[in-house]
Write a protein that binds this DNA or RNA. Structure first.
Lengths: 141, 141
DNA sequence: CACGGTTCCTTGAGTGGATCAAGCACCGAT
DNA sequence: ATCGGTGCTTGATCCACTCAAGGAACCGTG
C-alpha cells in the first residue's frame, strides 16, 4: 500500500489528476527503493545524508521523532551505508555521513527513480515552466 | 515521516516543485487521518468501502497482500467503522461496507483533507484545466 | 566551580503496517 | 468425487512510528 489515496469517487477532474499523480509518484519511489533493498524511510534518510548531517536536523526535516531516526540510521549502519561520527564541538551530538557504499547505492536508487525525469521529458520547456508555476500557485506559495 | 522525499539537492525547478507538491499532499493526508484517529492505511481503506467491496478487490487496488487488508479491516471492525458480511453467491468471499459511524467519520475526514480543494481554489478555471492536462501529459496518459 | 535547566541522542515498550508461508473452506471443472 | 485454483485468515517476522524515560554533555548563572 504505502500509498495515500482518494476514494475512486474523487470529485473533480483536477482532484483526480492530482491524486493520480501523487499516487504514481509515491509508487515509483517505493518501487525504486525496494528494488535496491531499501524501505521508503531508509531511502529517504539515505538521500539526505549526502553531506554530514546531525540526527536532530534529520528528525526535524522528516517530521518525526528523533528516536525513529536513531533506529533507521542504526539499520543503515549495520549495512555500512552510513556512518555515525562524533560531532567535533558538541559531544552530545553525532553526525551521519554516507559511506562510499551508501553513495553508490543511493546513486543507483536515484537513477532508477525515473518518474520525475520521465515527467519532465514528456513536456516541452514551456510546459515545464507552466507546470512548475501552477504547482506553486496551487500550494499558495 | 510517512513522506517520501527527494534530497534537498533536487535538480531542476520542476523536480523540486513536483516533490514539494507530493510532499504537501502526503502530509495533508496523514494529518487529516491522524486528526480523526485513523492511520494512513485505515483512512485509505475506509475511503474505498463506500460501496460494498470484496477484500481481494481492495488488496489489488492498494497493491498489497490480502492478509494486510484482513488486518486493517479487522481493526476498523473493532471500532465499528466497517462491517464484514458474507458474499451472497460465494461463501469464500466476504464483503466490506462502512457502517453509519464509518460514513460519518470518513465524511469528517474528507472534509478536513482540504489540500485538493484549496489547491483548486488557488487557481482560475482555465488554470485548473491546464494543470489537469499537464499532469496527464507528464504521466504520459 | 557547582548547580540546574536544556538539548541531543538512545533505549525500551507498545502499536500498526507490510510481507511471506501455511492452511482451511469453498468453487468449478473434469 | 476428486483435484487444482481462489479468497480469506493465521502466525511469524520485520520495520516504521510514537511516547516515556534516562544518560551525557552543554550552557548560563550565581
Amino acid at each position: 500500500m504505502a500509498v495515500p489515496s482518494v476514494p475512486a469517487s474523487a470529485s473533480t477532474d483536477l482532484e483526480q489528476a492530482l491524486f493520480t499523480f501523487v499516487d504514481a509518484y509515491n509508487q515509483a519511489w517505493d518501487a525504486a527503493a525496494s528494488d535496491h533493498g531499501l524501505s521508503t524511510a531508509q531511502a529517504c534518510v539515505l538521500g539526505r545524508v549526502e553531506h554530514r548531517r546531525g540526527m536532530g536536523e534529520l528528525a526535524e526535516e522528516l517530521r518525526c521523532d528523533a528516536s525513529n531516526i536513531t533506529q533507521i540510521v542504526a539499520r543503515l549502519e549495520t549495512r555500512d551505508l552510513v556512518h555515525r561520527e562524533p560531532h567535533p564541538d558538541d559531544r552530545r551530538s553525532r553526525q551521519i555521513v554516507r559511506t562510499p557504499d551508501g553513495d553508490k547505492l543511493y546513486g543507483d536508487f536515484e537513477e532508477s527513480f525515473e518518474l520525475p525525469r520521465t515527467a519532465a521529458a514528456n513536456l516541452t520547456a514551456a510546459e515545464r515552466e507552466q507546470l512548475t508555476a501552477l504547482l506553486h500557485k496551487a500550494l499558495g506559495s
